[in-house]
Structure formats: structure tokens, C-alpha cells
């Protein structure tokens, strides 16, 4: 079988170095003199996040400053990544509260099911992305840390308002 050879037979105007070079240089000069401003100077300028951005968690608190969580156990049950550790407790009045509430942010897949399932609107995903720690242990957020977060929280998708208007 013969070898298939692709024969290039371009029109003669396209085979010249001179025109192509001049054309290319005109293009680069155009960008040099009149650049399109596309850069965001990150630490100083930040792009707005979507209202439905799902970042690291935040636990909302009651007016007394206690976590809203009633330790119902729905969020560790629904969590597909199994990243929430919850040990429920009960005070003398019979109110349930979490003894231990830990989220491993490395295991979390940021699906937002915990926020959706929460009956007390306690656990939320945050509109926040600057997370860095010096150790892996630092990414296991305990209750104290979750309640101390102040960043805005994610707005879940609402079937009545699908476009988030």
C-alpha cells in the first residue's frame, strides 16, 4: 500500500515570509500600543463571587452567641464525603447541642447538602476562598472555628427562582 502523502498546495500569496512577518508584527504592535486590560491585580483587586459560591463552612449562631446546631444528625447522614463528625449532647433543660462538631475541609466536596438539609439553618457554606494553613490538621475545622467565621454565606439554589434573581 502506498504511503499517503499530504500535498500542500497553498496559494502563492500565502507562501511568502515577508507579508506574513509584517502582518504578525503589525498585530503585536497593535497589542503593544493598545493592550486589552484583562488582568485582575489579585491581592488588591478581587473579582465578585457568585451568590451561590460554595466555599469553606460557617456555623451561624443564636443571639446569645451559641451555635444554632441542635445536633439532629442530618448533616453527617447526608454528607456524601463523610467529612462531618458529630457527637450530640443534651443540657439539663433537655436541649440538644453538639459536643463535638468537626468538618474535615480536605474531605469535603463542597456539595452543599449539609446546608440544604439543616432544619435550623445552622451550618452554611461560605462565599470565601482564601484558605491556607501550615498543617493538614489545620483544615479540620472544629465548632469554635466554624462559629468564629465571619464571611458571607452561600445562597442555595431556589427552585422558585432558578436564575438567582
Amino acid at each position: 500500500m502506498a504511503i499517503g502523502v499530504k500535498v500542500l498546495d497553498r496559494p502563492i500569496e500565502q507562501t511568502s515570509y515577508v507579508r506574513a512577518t509584517l502582518k504578525g508584527m503589525a498585530l503585536t504592535a497593535k497589542h503593544l500600543l493598545n493592550p486589552q486590560k484583562v488582568t485582575t491585580q489579585y491581592p488588591e483587586q478581587k473579582k465578585p463571587l457568585s451568590p451561590r459560591w460554595r466555599g469553606t463552612h460557617r456555623m451561624l449562631t443564636t443571639e446569645e452567641g451559641k451555635a444554632k446546631c441542635v445536633a439532629c444528625g442530618l448533616c453527617p447522614t447526608i454528607c456524601p464525603a463523610n467529612c462531618i463528625k458529630l457527637v450530640p449532647g443534651e443540657d439539663e433543660k433537655g436541649n440538644r447541642y453538639p459536643l463535638i462538631f468537626e468538618i474535615d475541609e480536605f474531605r469535603c466536596i463542597f456539595c452543599g447538602y449539609c446546608q440544604e438539609v439543616c432544619p435550623e439553618e445552622a451550618i452554611h457554606l461560605g462565599r470565601h476562598y482564601e484558605n491556607s494553613e501550615y498543617s493538614r490538621q489545620g483544615f479540620v475545622y472544629d465548632l469554635e472555628r466554624l462559629t468564629a467565621q465571619t464571611h458571607p454565606v452561600c445562597e442555595m439554589w431556589d427552585p422558585a427562582d432558578p436564575k438567582g434573581e
Binding site: V5, V7, T15, S16, R19
Partner: peptide, 26 residues
């Protein structure tokens, strides 16, 4: 230069006879 007569571009230009031969093979 502009007409590609002296320096070859990305491929060398074949003369017509060779192009026809290659076309026939192809």
C-alpha cells in the same frame, strides 16, 4: 522574496510534475 521564489516557506515547493505524481498516488 514575496513570491516565494528564493526562500522556501514551511515546506519546499514542488514542481508541477511531482505534484501530479503525488496526487495520483494519493
Amino acid at each position: 522574496i514575496d513570491r516565494g521564489r528564493l526562500i522556501s516557506p514551511a515546506y519546499s515547493r514542488l514542481d508541477k510534475r511531482n505534484v501530479d505524481k503525488l496526487r495520483a498516488v494519493a
